[in-house]
């Protein structure tokens, strides 16, 4: 507990120092507000955005909620899709042989370049955002899960072979839980990519969302407003990652101990 308090203390101190340097830099160099806004202006924008009527377009909550809904749907679709495809590819070598080159090809493509296409296909509402979010979340989940399904202790498989377990039993009782730590590693990346995907889609063209707000503020050179949203996004990302970590701790509670005691 003491160590935690000390950590929090130094975190606060470093934040004050950083803000101090920021302010001093502006005073010394006289940088214009639209290049680097003073911390006070960012704070002002932040408070204004957070306290505005939640049903108005000026409200950060109004915009953020739409972005987060797209993020969560995209994460869900990309995550379930990634784990499922990884499982099918691990179970059926043939499917893996056929599909893997496409996976590699897609993976090498800068996927944000697809965003304009999604806008053409799906319009300016929620759908292209979810699609972009799912696309970005899908790959880290797929690749990590595949690794998880492949790297399963031979002894565990032999134990189940000795019991003449069915393919389904082997999958549910051994492969899925054995792969869970790596699946979660993929999901932890996936949630961050899902948020990124939603915002990218909003940059390209959307009615609502944090990405839309950023482009609007940018067009009127409201740099302090952009900074305020970046702060909000950092916090949102942190919250998403923390929730994932807690889920991981709950579902893969054995992770730290999953090494055979006689691995020597």
């Amino acid at each position: 507990m003491k160590a935690r308090l000390r950590e929090a203390f130094w975190l606060l101190v470093s934040a004050f120092v950083a803000i101090g340097i920021w302010q001093t830099l502006i005073s010394l160099t006289g940088l214009p507000k639209y290049v680097l806004p003073p911390p006070g202006a960012v704070w002002h924008e932040l408070v204004a955005g957070l306290t505005a009527d939640p049903s108005s377009r000026a409200s950060i909550w109004y915009q953020l909620s739409d972005t987060l809904v797209a993020t969560l749907w995209g994460f869900l679709l990309g995550g379930v899709g990634g784990v499922s495809l990884a499982a099918v590819m691990a179970e059926f070598r043939f499917v893996q042989k056929v599909l893997f080159p496409y996976v590699v090809g897609f993976q090498s493509l800068p996927k944000v370049a697809i965003a304009p296409l999604y806008v053409i296909w799906f319009g300016y509402e929620m759908e292209p955002k979810v699609a972009m979010s799912a696309t970005l979340a899908f790959f880290p989940v797929l690749l990590n899960a595949m690794q998880g399904f492949v790297a399963i202790e031979r002894d565990r498989m032999e134990l189940f072979a000795s019991l003449d377990a069915s393919r389904w039993q082997r999958f549910v009782m051994i492969k899925l839980p054995s792969a869970a730590p790596l699946i979660f590693a993929g999901l932890n990346l996936g949630i961050v990519y899902a948020l990124l995907g939603a915002i990218v889609a909003e940059f390209i063209g959307a009615q609502r969302g944090v990405g839309v707000l950023i482009t609007q503020l940018q067009s009127v050179s409201d740099t302090a407003g952009v900074f305020a949203i970046l702060v909000v996004l950092a916090v949102a990302g942190y919250v998403l990652i923390t929730v994932m970590r807690l889920l991981q701790k709950h579902f893969v509670f054995w992770q730290a101990s999953d090494t055979p005691p006689d691995a020597s």
């Binding site: 565990r156 009782m173 055979p260 005691p261 006689d262």
Partner: peptide
């Protein structure tokens, strides 16, 4: 040779 217990 090893216990092969499932940690979960």
């Amino acid at each position: 040779q090893s216990p092969v217990l499932l940690p979960w």
